[in-house]
Design a protein around this nucleic acid. Structure first.
Lengths: 343, 343
DNA sequence: CTGAAAGCGCTAACAA
DNA sequence: TTGTTAGCGCTTTCAG
């Protein structure tokens, strides 16, 4: 078992070589202004010459800061998350922070969270927390620095950044209603995700205000997944009286629906109107031109990082809840229903 | 400045509480078989009771192992990478390793690599290395554990996992040639990426063997990016004599091309045949049904992790180069050219 | 089987 | 302005 980096240069090596104390090397490293210009120069030269790289592990042990932030993500292959991830990564590096990433889907939340805590990450940004997550709850009780991005957890006191899911879904409903749809199906998200609950609630509220009732048989589980949405849409389309419109609780499911419609030779929006949620980049592609609800994803991600950074500095400050507006983006997947017979 | 985790329980706390030495606690933690069953039990109970989480930082300082692996990725929002990332993440956690992720695009390679080295990651998996990368070269010289996944770097001695880019591109060319195409455009990748170079070489070789010459004016820069591909395709379509076929050096560019074609009202494959490379999941979607070259991405990713894990154990062992086969997948974006006038 | 003690490489008082 | 010293929380000999 060979030690991987046995011959790593240390600050003591630098000190010896430069003829100063190890503490001085440390000062140079941390830009301590008290170090004499000359000394600094001498030390810097040696550092350069020996190719010294400070050991963040040792530093972390004493500073109690790892500059590491945990970012568990349910499913990176869901294109919603890469957009979030990109923005988070960018903002983190602006704060001098590094990301410990976990593709959390599948594995038990508690396991990967424990790993993050062992690693002494300075904080965690949860992007896919479930409503009743015991892990998040326990972390919150221990006042562990974290922010819930995109989704929140019921009754947990901590920083939260979300979009206006209720309002966005309401806008989606109003759009569909206005077009004349009455028989509307919904592809649900994860049953335990706040996003799904809020979006359904907003949608339902608007529909009921219009004096219409959502047919429970048309509320289908989708789990925010492409595959499930694809299958459900196929099934929906085979119904005796298929819906004229379909509200998908996220864009990825809308793509599943659109592809299923194509497969079933159902014309969109003539036979079926489709609305998504999130407005990820692909939604604007000519292949989809999806009508959807836009959320300022990048901004939300950046804000999450900022909040976390502040939280790490001031763990005891009161927690904040930021809600970002959402906006209906009309594109080509929605139109009036074909016949008013269904209305 | 409040210390974030000031009140973290340490192994000494556990020791005191359990009435044993701190060393014994450490032994229990690491499953040392010499510890008496009774002692182990007592210690474990206290650990449980006080909610103790071992400090990986402190451990890393002495073991010289962080169990962290750096994974820089050029652009997570390019859907090719999430598929790689997912597989890498899964395999890493199987090895008890955690991922330090960087969305490297934009920032200088040297900067984020330095961060990883400071963090004392056990190794790095490069997924987007450029052919002449000085950083990779210098890391290799210092025998830093790393594997080049997907792309390699010229003249660098280290573990490499790639697909058969040359062979795959050749298959793409033969397919197009067989269909009767003679006027073929190519959307290139990153000029300094081995993938792009090899794919172009393979494609060119096959075309020239058929006694045809690639029109240099139809070799367009695409940078593996959707946007560039979209723009270039639009331009290509406006040519006096547009190409009848387009070989895109990755799938994402093919999607750009397909969407551009739609925008320009060019029928695929009637007016333009399109071939991609990678066969990411989306390529099979009804919206695209892209003819492309399949690479065993997940398998390549898993292999990369395995190689790295082995390399960390045996830094001096001789390096390996694994090439995975590629395969033409015929779908709906390719067909014979409309008129033989162009042939 | 268990404890004592010596660090790992760094930062941060405290002196000088 | 610089050096000395004491740890940070662990693992790992070395004794016993």
């Amino acid at each position: 078992m060979g030690s991987p980096t046995a011959l790593m240069v240390t600050s003591s090596d630098i000190a010896k070589e430069a003829g100063v104390s190890q503490a001085t090397v440390s000062r140079v490293l941390n830009g301590d202004p008290r170090v004499a210009k000359q000394t600094r120069r001498r030390v810097s030269d040696v550092i350069e010459r020996l190719g010294y790289t400070p050991n963040a592990i040792a530093r972390g042990l004493v500073t109690r800061r790892s500059n590491l932030v945990g970012v568990p993500i349910a499913d990176v292959t869901n294109p919603f998350y890469p957009e979030l991830l990109e923005a988070i990564a960018g903002q983190l590096s602006g704060h001098g922070l590094k990301m410990v990433f976990s593709n959390s889907g599948g594995q038990p939340e508690e396991a990967y969270t424990r790993l993050l805590v062992e690693q002494r990450v300075d904080g965690i940004i949860f992007t896919s927390a479930l409503l009743d997550s015991p892990t998040v709850r326990s972390l919150a009780e221990r006042r562990f620095p974290m922010v819930l991005a995109n989704r929140y957890v019921d009754g947990v006191e901590c920083d939260v950044v979300v979009g206006d899911n209720h309002g966005g879904a309401r806008a989606a409903a109003e759009h569909l209603l206005e077009l004349g749809h009455r028989r509307i199906a919904v592809l649900l998200g994860h049953p335990a995700a706040s996003t799904g609950r809020d979006r359904l609630a907003g949608f339902r509220a608007a529909v009921e205000e219009a004096g219409i009732e959502l047919d429970a048989a048309l509320l289908r589980p989708g789990g925010y997944s492409y595959d499930a949405a694809y299958a459900e849409t196929l099934a929906l389309l085979e119904l005796e009286r298929p819906p004229t419109a379909l509200f998908c609780l996220n864009d990825v499911m809308a793509f599943g629906a659109l592809n299923a419609a194509r497969r079933a030779r159902a014309a969109v929006p003539r036979d079926l109107s489709v609305v998504g949620f999130d407005d990820i980049r692909m939604s604007a592609w000519e292949a989809f031109e999806l009508t959807t609800i836009r959320q300022p994803l990048a901004e939300m991600a950046r804000t999450s990082v900022d909040l976390l950074a502040q939280r790490v500095e001031a763990p005891a400050s009161s927690s904040r809840r930021l809600v970002f507006p959402s906006l209906l983006v009309r594109r080509s997947t929605t139109g009036p229903p074909r016949s008013r017979a269904d209305a």
